[in-house]
Amino acid sequence: MTSPLRRLFRPWPRTTLVVVTGLVAGLAGLVSADLRTPDDVPVGPAPLPGESWVELLSMADPLGGDGFDEVVTEVTADAVSDEMFVLPSGGETALTLLPEGGYEVWTSCRFVEEGFDQGSGTLDMYEHDGERHVFDVECVAPAAPTGETVTVPEDTAIQSSFRVMTYQGHVPIDDDMEPTMIIAVYFVPR
């Protein structure tokens, strides 16, 4: 009877050799996978690609146009409320934070260009998650009520824009030219 140790050192049948080798290698694979620490495995979000530069293209005041200062002073000279904003016509928008409450809307308006004295426009006020108020206002001074009212149950952001609709003047009017108005909008507590 051959001892197990001596049998171990005798040449192995090929099948035994392959099976044992496979078992040992498989065990090695299992152990090496098990020994992997979590640090080896990517976790969390995949890294995002991206460049790291930023350029400030411009910083502009919507009321910084030529000749605006004088007109802004005029339309705000007869201020009727502290809750107000000033806005030029022509695609600019104003963002205003209106404290909770009920208000009458008053406006005061002037043309920037010389020679225009009568006109009207459309004021578009959009409450954040709320109502939208679109109404026509005559370009008058000093400030006058528009008949429009606004009520906000809490402090509310309002985005506004103003478009010129009609105008008359003493200067020849080019079809391509549209005068610029500056409007002061006041929220007068009711």
Partner: peptide
Amino acid sequence: AGVLSASVTFLAVRHRTFPDPPA
């Protein structure tokens, strides 16, 4: 035999043990 067995075992166990890398 060693390379094949170790590779197959490693891949199988790794897939089962660890989550897939984040997409």
